Simulated scan of single mutants.
Amino acid sequence: MTDDHPLPLAAKERNSATSLRDASIPWAAMAGIIATVTVFAVAQGLTYPLLSFILERQDTTSGLIGLSAAMTPLGFIVSAPLVPALSRRIPAERLAILCSVLAALTLAAIASMQNVWAWMPLRFLLGFFANPLYVISETWLVSLTPASYRGRIMGLYSSIVSGGFALGPLSLGLAGTEGLPPFLIGIAAFLLCGLIVHAVVARLPAMPQEGEAISVASFFALAPLLLFAVFTAAAFEQVLLSLFAVYGTAFGSDEQRIASLITCFITGNAVLQILLGRLAERFGSRRTLLFCVLICLAACLLLSPSFDTWLIWPLVFLWGGVSFGLYTLSLIQLGERFTGSSLIAGNAAFALVWGLGGILGSPATGMAMQIIGHHGLPLSLGLLSGALVVVLMVKR
């Protein structure tokens, strides 16, 4: 009985504290961060299928197309270990603007050439310049987000950014895949990204530096399961963006339908992430992660039988949502478990592993398709999904 009065009082204090925290949420800063990455995603979402279509018309082998696509994630890998140190030496907003301008110049150089070998180093530079902006933006966002809103806000972030990726392939249906117009869209998007950062720079926080500084390599021992999930999400996205055009061509589909299916895949990302974030808040991010991987595995099994039917559209939509959900849920867990310098190292490690997923996933899948045919795409992704399911079940 002596505890009857203190409990309601404590509840009121908690509610009051929550209200104060909610009132102080920097919505303007978070909106600027999300807008920046979204515009950047438009350019990247356009680049992958555009270059794949061009190489396909040049009768380039699927293995070489996959290798070319892997150059961008290789840039992610090489730049990732440098980001924590760079963020301590260069103001984060300046670094983000610089990366936006350099990415635009790199895409302009790609547009001026039509050779797969000339594109290799340029696509590497595109990933090298893109990665710091993603790491900086996600560190800003995770550090600003209150724990009680983390699932929804990170889901909203992933949804809006995925919408940017969806606009990339969709723009190919309007601008086409020949000549300068599609490249000009990407260049303009990269430059607009830098302008947005400049516009909101006064509202952006400094990079969190509290706690003992750890390297990206050291972070691998702290969260191996999260990194494997990010690897899987990256492999799905890179393979679908770079090789789905080749896969669809094997079924006799035209470029317009394939681009629309890629857009449907990324639209699933955009629509479902808030729901997945809400599910993570209710049932836990780990359980929701396992649910997403199981759906990914089922979609791999159903892709080929349903490709020429109307079922391909809802299947690809759901597949897109849950495959990118692996990254969203990993990002939520990152914010739950890490702060300060370890948060920056964690985001950089995510970027490195994302690059690994792309650089290994695209060539491996491309070679599988070259050896056993177009079914190599769902087979490769299905094996990866199955491995993640096993790891998640064992670690329960």
Rank of each mutant, 00 (worst) to 15 (best):
L9S: 12
A10H: 12
A11H: 09
E13Y: 10
R14M: 14
P26R: 01
A29E: 11
M30W: 02
I34L: 00
T36K: 00
A41M: 08
A43W: 06
L50E: 12
S52E: 11
I54P: 07
R57Y: 09
D59H: 14
T60C: 02
G63A: 11
L67W: 06
A70L: 10
A70C: 05
T72Y: 14
P73Q: 10
L74M: 11
G75Q: 13
G75D: 14
P84I: 08
R88H: 02
A92W: 01
A104S: 13
L105V: 07
T106I: 05
T106E: 09
A109R: 11
I110D: 10
Q114D: 15
G127Q: 04
G127R: 02
Y134M: 12
E138P: 03
E138T: 05
A147K: 10
A147I: 03
G151S: 00
G155L: 04
Y157C: 00
G164H: 03
A166Q: 03
L174N: 04
E178H: 14
G179I: 06
P182S: 15
P182N: 15
L184G: 14
I185P: 10
A189L: 05
F190M: 14
C193G: 11
A202C: 06
A202K: 11
A202G: 08
L204H: 09
L204E: 09
P205K: 02
M207E: 08
M207K: 02
Q209H: 06
Q209C: 02
Q209R: 07
G211C: 14
I214R: 01
I214D: 01
F219A: 07
L222I: 13
A223F: 12
P224M: 10
L225T: 14
F228S: 04
A229Y: 07
A235P: 03
A235I: 05
F236I: 04
E237F: 07
E237V: 13
L243Q: 02
V246C: 05
V246D: 12
Y247R: 01
Y247S: 02
D254R: 03
I262A: 02
G268F: 06
G268N: 07
L272P: 04
Q273E: 12
I274N: 03
G277R: 07
R278L: 08
E281A: 00
F283L: 15
L289E: 02
L290R: 08
C292F: 09
A298Y: 11
C300T: 08
C300R: 01
L302V: 10
L303E: 04
L303S: 04
F307G: 04
D308F: 10
T309G: 01
T309P: 00
W310Y: 06
W313Y: 12
P314H: 04
G320D: 03
S323T: 15
F324N: 10
G325R: 09
G325M: 09
Y327M: 14
S330R: 06
R337G: 06
F338S: 08
S341T: 00
A348N: 08
A349G: 11
A351W: 08
L352A: 09
W354L: 13
W354N: 13
G355I: 02
I359T: 15
I359V: 14
L360Q: 13
T365H: 12
T365R: 09
G366D: 00
I371Q: 12
I372D: 08
G373M: 09
L381E: 05
G386T: 09
G386A: 15
L388W: 04
V391T: 15
L392K: 01
V394Q: 11
R396V: 06
